[in-house]
């Protein structure tokens, strides 16, 4: 009896010392956890993106892009997936991510957090980006041309995408406000589906009468046949605005050499529909080509963000 008693205590001591050791353990070689085990000669160039679509689609898209950039830039490129919009802004701010694909609003938020961060590149479609309002056919809501048609959503259930989405929340809410429709005119509280794909699915299933999302995602899903257009239709397209863009941290030139930002820009601008590998990436992005952009393009978005209270 004594023996096991004694061992019990020994085990307790082991437990405690193991736990103490765990806390005092020297830091392992500094390497981000999600990085594959293969040792990289230098710190990798980490990219991320706001999770606005199906995570699976995002993994495919950014996996391909990371490969392409690795070949073009000659450094290890790692894609770090994150769960929500705010998390990307955080990771960008803390420096866990060197360059990220932001929406209009998150891009402004990120630049406000990191002095000297630059908007560098966006798709051709992003300088004239639009949102679409969609509705379930069974509701009988008809498509309309003028913004005032949004008043027809009065008394209907409605869902946005993510809280911090530009095309799925900020701009739709802005246009609803312009039309004179207040959120309290809707039936129940508005939903926040979390992503554009989920907005389509919820409206298609009838969970919500109507919703708003990114026009490009909508068109891509219609094209690939993932949307049942006998159940859900577009009722209105918004006027254009600046949206998605790549933002890069100011300190990347220290880490990867002078002129690195320029090389990143060149890599994007070199993407060409004629090249099959390039075409695959461009198609996944839903773009014909990438173009340059600059911080000043987002002055309007910032103003709307402040108006709606998403930027303090």
């Amino acid at each position: 009896m004594f023996r096991s008693q004694q061992k019990t205590r020994l085990a307790l001591a082991l437990c405690i010392s193991a736990a103490v050791a765990a806390c005092a353990a020297p830091p392992p070689a500094a390497a981000p956890a999600s990085q594959p085990a293969a040792p990289a000669p230098t710190k990798p160039f980490v990219i991320s993106a706001i999770p606005d679509q199906d995570p699976e689609k995002l993994n495919r898209l950014y996996g391909k892009l990371a490969e392409y950039l690795k070949a073009e830039l000659g450094v290890e490129v790692v894609y770090k997936p994150v769960t929500d919009y705010t998390a990307v802004v955080n990771a960008f701010k803390t420096g866990d991510v060197d360059m990220a694909w932001f929406g209009g609003l998150t891009g402004v938020q990120a630049r406000l957090q990191v002095d000297g961060a630059q908007a560098i590149i966006q798709r051709d479609i992003d300088e004239k980006f639009r949102s679409v309002f969609i509705a379930n056919v069974a509701t009988g809501i008809q498509p309309f041309e003028d913004i005032s048609g949004l008043m027809g959503l009065k008394g209907r259930t409605f869902t946005f995408g993510s809280e911090s989405s530009t095309s799925g929340r900020l701009m739709p809410q802005f246009f609803m406000r312009q039309a004179g429709l207040s959120l309290s005119d809707l039936k129940g509280e508005p939903g926040f589906s979390g992503s554009h794909d989920k907005t389509i699915k919820l409206v298609e299933a009838g969970s919500y009468d109507a919703g708003a999302l990114n026009a490009q995602v909508w068109e891509a899903r219609v094209k690939s046949g993932e949307v049942d257009t006998s159940k859900v239709i577009v009722i209105w397209r918004t006027p254009p605005y600046y949206d998605y863009h790549w933002i890069v941290r100011p300190d990347v030139e220290q880490n990867f050499g002078a002129g690195f930002i320029g090389r990143v820009k060149q890599a994007f601008l070199a993407l060409d529909q004629a090249n099959p590998t390039h075409k695959e990436i461009l198609d996944l992005f839903g773009a014909q080509k990438f173009i340059e952009t600059k911080n000043e393009n987002y002055v309007d978005i910032e103003a709307i963000g402040r108006e709606i209270g998403k930027i303090k």
Binding site: S4, T8, C15, A18, A30
Partner: peptide, 28 residues
């Protein structure tokens, strides 16, 4: 004071370093 308990405790103590190895937190 049973042997089962002893076994559990040893396993429990061993689990901590194993878990740390698995998730690799960066204490630095």
């Amino acid at each position: 004071s049973s042997r089962t308990l002893l076994g559990l405790l040893v396993v429990g103590a061993a689990l901590v370093p194993l878990s740390l190895l698995y998730i690799r937190p960066d204490f630095g």
